[in-house]
Design a protein around this nucleic acid. Structure first.
Ligand code: FES
Ligand code: FES
Lengths: 140, 140
DNA sequence: TGTAAAAAGGATAAAAACATCCTTTATTGA
DNA sequence: TCAATAAAGGATGTTTTTATCCTTTTTACA
């Protein structure tokens, strides 16, 4: 479904979202917390920061955090940034085109699914997820 | 979503399903038809044949085909044979366990999604798909 | 029989994903 | 100003996935 990069990315963003406002976390801290390889995670965080989906400051006391705007982004944006738009748009059987004009045998079913998935991903706002993480003690 | 192997596999099975009963197709023929690399496809067909999901005969005039039983299998079995059971069972965020006891922040939504997907995949019988392929001139 | 066809099986190669390491840049605070 | 800290960026290595090639086995049929 998602690549490892994407999974790490989502988890990292959710971790940042569940931090107290004003608190920052460094790569090593996040990597330890999520139990993922730190240098690899660093690349992913870099990519998300470049895309403006998370925020960062260099130097002592620096690290990564979510600005209020960042916390208003949704899962779809995170996934799109790391894995690209194919999950929601490319043919599930890998055919060169995906359209009602030239449908594969799974097109109709796939489209119904992806509509649902798309809706869900676009309505999963990071800050809302953070609330339920705290409230329901969910794992990262 | 699916690996390339899996996509090729599904398409090959559907191609075989849309053949007249009694007709066999060789690797090269299938590969040409689907526009995929023949030696790679051969490995996938081998794997499916070994698992009893498609049938094959060696020698002149030989090739791959679907027995009536094969045509009664469903997409879930094909996918499970090639990509394994993770799509429907592993945590979407890659956490070591996926359960209601230790849910990740996407567990509830993911579960709903996977239940639907599972139901669909298990009810997509190959021979039914073959019928709609013929009726609606779908692409492979 | 023996020869050709076609899948099965094994070994190898190329590409992509995953992961690590080192250098540079920005920032803080002594 | 200078040293320490932490992200940014670039180069490199490893593993997995994707792809190719060659040999062996089975089968049809001349
Ligand atoms: S054509 Fe295959 S999913 Fe649309
Ligand atoms: S725990 Fe993540 S999907 Fe179930």
């Amino acid at each position: 479904m998602f690549s490892k990069s994407c999974k790490y990315g989502i988890r990292a963003v959710l971790f940042l979202a569940s931090l107290e406002t004003g608190i920052r976390a460094g790569v090593k801290e996040i990597a330890t917390e999520l139990n993922v390889p730190a240098p690899f995670l660093a690349k992913i965080l870099q990519q998300l920061a470049k895309a403006g989906l998370i925020s960062s400051v260099k130097g002592p006391g620096g690290g990564f955090y979510l600005s209020p705007e960042n916390a208003d982004s949704n899962l779809s944006e995170i996934i799109n940034c790391i894995d690209g738009p194919d999950l929601l748009h490319a043919c599930v059987l890998g055919l060169p085109a995906c359209s009602h004009k030239h449908p594969c045998p799974l097109h109709v079913q796939a489209n119904a699914f992806r509509q649902g998935l798309k809706f869900q991903l676009e309505h999963q706002i990071i800050k809302d997820l953070a609330l339920s993480i705290k409230k329901e003690h969910l794992n990262l």
